[in-house]
């Protein structure tokens, strides 16, 4: 069995918790979420520490157990983010498409890169998928404008409306593929 750790990060209120909760519901329905959805929130329903659940899939006799976690988005909780990204195998960068949040999206990405660097990892070499959330906003920034700022990897992106579950599964599927492909043997074995 292989254990994978997938972390959703991004600015506060970008939709990380909504995404992960929706994902849990979708995977639960498919019978591949294990146990409950664990959430540590403040009284204002903001993520205090972490939200997480487990999912398990089997491919060709190999079991992949995935732990899906969110980081708290609020800047004051930065030290807790550091604790959560330890040993991460893949990241989803949840971007808020609202025009007022453009700068904060970038700052969170830069800060996450610094945290990973401190732990000996290079954010730009990790498997990452960018999820542009809140695409239903009438004034959502165009993807062309967000891409140069929020996707320095030039990696796959998914447009989402997490509150409606749109793009949630596609994002997850993309990050799992990216993580597993890293470990797939070259050629066929």
């Amino acid at each position: 069995m292989m254990k994978l750790k997938i972390v959703y990060f991004g600015a506060s209120l970008a939709g990380k918790s909504t995404t992960v909760k929706k994902l849990y519901e979708i995977l639960k329905e498919k019978g591949i979420a294990k146990g409950d959805f664990v959430s540590m929130e403040t009284d204002e329903k903001r993520t205090l520490f972490v939200e997480m659940f487990l999912s398990s899939i089997e491919i060709e006799g190999e079991t992949f157990e995935m732990k899906i976690l969110t980081t708290p988005g609020q800047f004051r909780l930065h030290p807790l983010r550091k604790a959560i990204v330890q040993g991460v195998d893949g990241l989803v960068f949840v971007v808020d498409s609202h025009p007022d949040r453009e700068k904060i999206n970038f700052l969170v990405m830069r800060e996450t890169a610094a945290v990973l660097k401190e732990q000996g990892f290079d954010l730009y070499k990790l498997p990452v998928v960018v999820q542009y959330n809140k695409r239903d906003l009438p004034n959502a920034l165009p993807i062309d404008e967000l891409e140069p700022v929020c996707n320095p990897w030039g990696t796959k992106y998914v447009e989402s409306v997490a509150t409606e579950g749109i793009g949630v599964l596609e994002t997850f599927s993309s990050i799992v593929k990216k993580v597993l492909n890293r470990y797939a043997e070259k050629g066929s074995v």
């Binding site: 491919i59 060709e60 190999e62 799992v176 593929k177 597993l180 492909n181 797939a184 043997e185 050629g187």
Partner: peptide, 13 residues
Amino acid sequence: LVKLTPDMIEEKL
């Protein structure tokens, strides 16, 4: 290493 090719991973997922 995972004993799977990228195509197999794509298809199975």
